[in-house]
Design a protein around this nucleic acid. Structure first.
Length: 268
DNA sequence: CTCCAGGGATGAT
DNA sequence: ATCATCCATGGA
């Protein structure tokens, strides 16, 4: 199957996939394989060009179309975001300049909402290597297997399939105490008590408040989901690393700067 | 306000 | 080979 070529200026695929916003892509040879929503995708970068192909099965809905791979990949990796303009809008201080240089080509992806929410519920108190294991285990146990490049890729399980599971089944995926939260949130999403799509219409503040009502979602995870799935580019997740950098670079020698103060600072 | 839960990768000893 | 450290949320 032939690779489709997609223009990808100001983009670094490996950096984007390794930046802690998505956890299931596998490096295979010159490229990566993974799932974008229900489709198995192979993607590799050659300078300013992305080369991609996909395998997918149309959903059971008659008449549903398989999107062209270029459209799917462009949307997922947000190749339409004006990255140069976004970077130019950042504060011009030494720490930000260093960060801009270091992260050249890192884009904020547009991930499916449920997949992103569920993955970040699993991420709490875990390091990236663990989150990858959990994502893999959940996909292999509850997702749908698809083939590409003779590799098997698993889609992320639906809220429905996790909701029908049990806490003890989920615990087998190395979730620990997160299993309870994931199960409870899956049931809220399945029942449409938590209507993730409808929440797209909410303001940033209202969306954050809604997300934080879900079990296992606090301020940090809500901001991750807003940023990586709701395209709220003003959201600013503060994890321990960002907190350390903020304290060191912007509040040096002020030991009693509160997390609340850091949040207010990041919002301006 | 403080303390704690559960667990696998990672790096130090 | 053993040991300390990393981590966000929610409940006691």
């Amino acid at each position: 199957m032939k690779l489709v070529e997609i223009a990808a200026p100001d983009f670094d695929l490996a950096m984007t996939l390794d930046s802690g916003q998505v956890f299931h892509w596998q490096k295979i040879g010159d490229g990566f394989v993974g799932a974008i929503a229900d489709y198995a995708v192979h993607v590799e970068q050659d300078g300013d060009v992305l080369k991609a192909k996909m395998e997918g099965v149309a959903s059971a809905t008659p008449g549903s179309l398989i999107p062209p791979v270029a459209k799917l990949v462009k949307h997922y990796f947000a190749l339409d975001h004006p990255l140069a303009a976004i970077c130019a809008s950042f504060p011009n201080d030494p720490a930000m300049s260093a960060a801009r240089h270091f992260c050249r080509g890192l884009r904020i992806t547009r991930q499916p909402k449920w997949e992103c929410l569920a993955t970040f519920i699993c991420s709490s108190m875990k390091q990236v290597a663990h989150i990858r294991q959990i994502s893999k285990a959940l996909r292999e146990r509850f997702g749908v297997a698809r083939k590409i490049d003779h590799q098997v890729v698993h889609t992320f399980p639906s809220a429905q399939s996790l909701a029908e599971s049990s806490e003890s089944e989920l615990r087998k995926c190395a979730l620990g105490y997160r299993a309870k939260n994931l199960l409870a949130t899956a049931r809220l999403v399945r029942s449409s008590e938590a209507d993730l799509d409808a929440w797209s219409a909410l303001s940033d503040a209202d969306l954050r408040e809604k997300l934080c009502t879900l079990p296992g979602v606090g301020a940090k995870i809500a901001n991750c989901v807003m940023l990586f799935a709701y395209e709220r580019l003003r959201a600013f997740p503060i994890d321990v690393w960002i907190e350390r950098v903020l304290r060191e670079k912007y509040f040096p020698g002020n030991g009693k700067t509160t997390t609340q103060r850091l949040r207010e600072f990041s919002e301006t």
